[in-house]
């Protein structure tokens, strides 16, 4: 398994959108047809009834993120778009990582998991499933280390992000 090594500038855009059938389709269709590259997209219910919040991690500089923001805003089902890249934010992603294990490697894996404050949620004779939460860098670092044992499956939710409240 290869992990993309090249480093790209990324930006974080959040949007409040109607929670209706087809809305995600409208958004991804627009991103695709205009050739925008996205690293991840996560969507779920917001605190407001009938509205969802989505977080898009976009690859590209200011010009690109400005276009994405404007194009998202043009969609009728998108209520509000914010580029929060330059603000103080917290961002988290959940990953499930299935890694090969043997009686010899198990304790080493457990140690790594505890250093990264991840959790072991399933153990079988040949593999372990790890639940890790963190920002992009943390999960990538853990994944890189686990690579040595042989990762058989990775499932990631995509990043979600939120502004920190100013004191």
């Amino acid at each position: 398994m290869t992990i993309k090594k090249h480093k790209l500038e990324t930006r974080t855009v959040t949007a409040l959108v109607n929670d209706k059938p087809g809305v995600l389709n409208r958004i991804t269709s627009m991103l695709r047809r205009r050739g925008f590259n996205i690293q991840s997209l996560a969507v779920g219910h917001s605190e407001i009834e009938d509205l969802s919040r989505l977080t898009v991690i976009v690859e590209g500089g200011d010009d690109i993120v400005e276009q994405i923001t404007k194009q998202l805003h043009k969609l009728i089902d998108v209520i509000k778009v914010t580029d929060i890249s330059d603000e103080s934010i917290v961002s988290r992603e959940l990953a499930l990582i299935k890694v090969k294990s043997t009686p010899e490697t198990r304790s080493e894996i457990v140690q790594l998991v505890s250093i990264y404050r991840a959790k072991i949620i399933d153990v079988s004779s040949k593999s372990i499933i790890i639940e890790a939460t963190g920002d992009y860098q943390k999960i990538k670092a853990l994944q890189d280390l686990l690579e040595n044992f042989g990762i058989t499956e990775v499932m990631r939710t995509g990043m979600i992000a939120m502004n920190r409240e100013k004191n």
């Binding site: 404007k70 194009q71 043009k74």
Partner: peptide, 8 residues
């Protein structure tokens, strides 16, 4: 009238 045209 379309903000996305500006600077596109």
């Amino acid at each position: 009238i379309d903000a996305s045209e500006v600077g596109k």
